[in-house]
Amino acid sequence: MDSSVTSATYIRNLGYCLRRKLSDFLDPQDRWKEVLVDIQKPSGEPRYSQLHVRRFEGLVAQGRSPTMELLNDWGTTKSTVGELVDILKSHELLAAANVLLPESSPLET
């Protein structure tokens, strides 16, 4: 299933292993926050507020993965892997982008 991910795949259809791998990259050093603040509603306003960020921070205190919870939450919209990859690339989180779409973002060496 992982191999069939394209930029048009809905985030909600991502498999467990892929989510796990993404959190390996995005959980450390609060990189998930960079992604979270860039997520927009279709209207263009930010989807998550500072108060929402605190809620996700609270999950960390419970030992849960904020990236996993973010993907669950964001997955309830019609957002696609392409949108996520664009955000990842804009923050130079290329390793994470590479997990989703290996061919589209060659790792710079």
């Binding site: 998550y48 809620r55 996700f56 669950n72 939450d73 309830t76």
Partner: peptide, 11 residues
């Protein structure tokens, strides 16, 4: 399946 899991922000 869609609604039982608790979400941080989404309904």
């Amino acid at each position: 399946l869609y609604l039982n899991p608790k979400h941080t922000v989404a309904a």
